[in-house]
């Protein structure tokens, strides 16, 4: 009898609690700061240009060879980034490229909603990698 009463009060307490399920498409689960998502190219805040100078170290470091970098000589004789291509179908999100970058020019974003109908869309170009850096947590 005592056990029945005890169970009754446990259930009564649970009635007024918030449910544990996150209603996914409307609410988002908050992801910790250091979590690893898709690469993004950082922008210099003053001139709004890409910091990366196209040295190609990340291409050598990457265990799956998923990054392609090309550089060209700019107007004032300095080396400027020409093309930056990320193949998402090869990437394993290990984060070695961020660790080894000498310029601190790339970063891991929080973007994880990645599902595509065709394989061609998994290849991300330079302007798509810059886009998420404008806002930090809105682009989920």
């Amino acid at each position: 009898m005592l056990r029945l009463l005890k169970n009754f009060f446990i259930i009564l307490g649970n009635l007024f609690k918030k449910p544990r399920t996150v209603i996914y498409p409307r609410e988002k689960i908050i992801i910790p700061d250091s979590s690893r998502g898709v690469l993004r190219l950082k922008l210099d805040l003053d001139s709004l240009e890409v910091i990366c100078n196209g040295c190609g170290l990340c291409n050598i470091i990457c265990p799956q060879d998923c990054i392609e970098v090309k550089k060209r000589i700019g107007d004032n004789g300095r080396e400027v980034l020409d093309e930056f291509c990320l193949d998402l179908s090869k990437c394993i999100f290990c984060g070695n490229c961020v660790e080894f970058c000498e310029m601190n020019a790339i970063d891991m974003s929080y973007k994880y909603q990645l599902a595509e109908y065709s394989e061609k869309n998994l290849r991300l170009e330079k302007f798509e990698l810059i886009k998420p850096s404008g806002t930090i947590r809105d682009f989920w």
Binding site: I31, P32, S34, S35, R36, I92, C94, G95, E99, M108
Partner: peptide, 20 residues
């Protein structure tokens, strides 16, 4: 995940210490 950055494949240990 707050410590390492990934849920299952951490890639966190380095020779001589840890990454972060």
């Amino acid at each position: 995940e707050t410590v390492t950055g990934s849920r299952i494949v951490p890639n966190f240990i380095r020779i001589g210490g840890v990454k972060k």
